[in-house]
């Protein structure tokens, strides 16, 4: 595992819903072109944290954020930054696969382009490339005009990953991408995440520690809205430096 540059630099990040503070001064440097996993017990703030990284958190009523998140050195919370444009650089895949029901498979892949203005002439190539990238091409190449929702759950989730990489983001955020699909599909999506980590900076939230161990290069352990430990995945799972981390990964709680 080579040491790489920092893609996202988070410092002193607080996040709240109204009066309820969910994240407490998180500091973390997320490496470029690696898979970073966020683990922790339910309600520890890992999904909220993820949503702060592409400014989705602020779409929730009464949600507030303090602190800085730098993408390649530029603060994404700066006044000059348009959150809509930012989200084209930092894509997101959600817990429940959500292909657009009125759209075909091909249109779903192109969704990012269709929604934001225009589909270029080489749309067919883009669809093929994205679907190959999401390891879905072989299964759907003969039914691209069929609705996206006609696919199985696991296929839908890979379709959503294809949709996310079509806009060529720098970073992909994934919020428990395997929690709503079956074990076989999970294995395929995990492989996919691992492969995508070669070219994309990926931050993946998971409640499944084995999954974090399988797919990530680095792992962060969050508890009660605080970052307890952040280290190489191999180190964190074999030789954690904090007692809480050890208790959690050995199943003493959570």
């Amino acid at each position: 595992m080579s040491t790489t540059s920092t893609k996202l630099s988070v410092s002193d990040l607080d996040a709240s819903y109204g009066d309820h503070q969910v994240l407490h001064s998180i500091d973390m440097d997320i490496p470029a072109k690696e898979v970073t996993a966020l683990i922790g017990p339910s309600g520890c703030g890992k999904s909220t944290y993820l949503r702060c990284l592409n400014r989705m958190h602020e779409l929730t009523t009464a949600a507030t954020v303090n602190g800085t998140v730098q993408l390649d050195g530029a603060d994404i919370y700066h006044d000059d930054i348009d959150p809509v444009l930012l989200r084209r650089h930092i894509g997101m895949v959600f817990q429940k696969p959500a292909p657009f029901p009125t759209w075909s498979i091909a249109d779903n892949v192109l969704a990012g382009l269709k929604l934001t203005g225009g589909v270029p002439d080489n749309a067919d190539e883009i669809v093929e490339k994205a679907l190959k990238g999401a390891a879905l091409w072989e299964e759907v190449k003969d039914k691209l005009d069929k609705p996206g929702t006609s696919l199985s759950g696991g296929q839908q989730q890979r379709l959503c990953i294809a949709r996310a990489i079509t806009v060529e983001p720098d970073v992909l955020l994934m919020d428990e991408p395997c929690s709503a699909i079956d074990p076989v599909a999970t294995a395929r999506v995990e492989n996919l995440i691992h492969e995508l980590g070669e070219n994309y900076t990926i931050v993946v939230v998971t409640h499944n520690m084995q999954q974090a161990a399988r797919i990530s290069d680095k792992t962060a352990f969050l508890m009660m809205g605080e970052l307890v430990e952040f280290d190489e995945t191999s180190k964190l799972f074999s030789n954690p430096s904090k007692q809480e981390t050890e208790d959690y990964i050995t199943g003493k709680f959570g």
Binding site: M56, L59, L86, R87, T102, A111, G112, L115, V167
Partner: peptide
């Protein structure tokens, strides 16, 4: 119309208007 579809659209970098016009209203 499920909120997850709106979020998916925002996540792709669509504006509110683009989301309403192309995702929410057709559904």
């Amino acid at each position: 119309v499920p909120g997850s579809l709106r979020e998916a659209s925002y996540g792709l970098g669509a504006t509110k208007w683009e989301t309403i016009r192309q995702v929410v209203l057709p559904m």
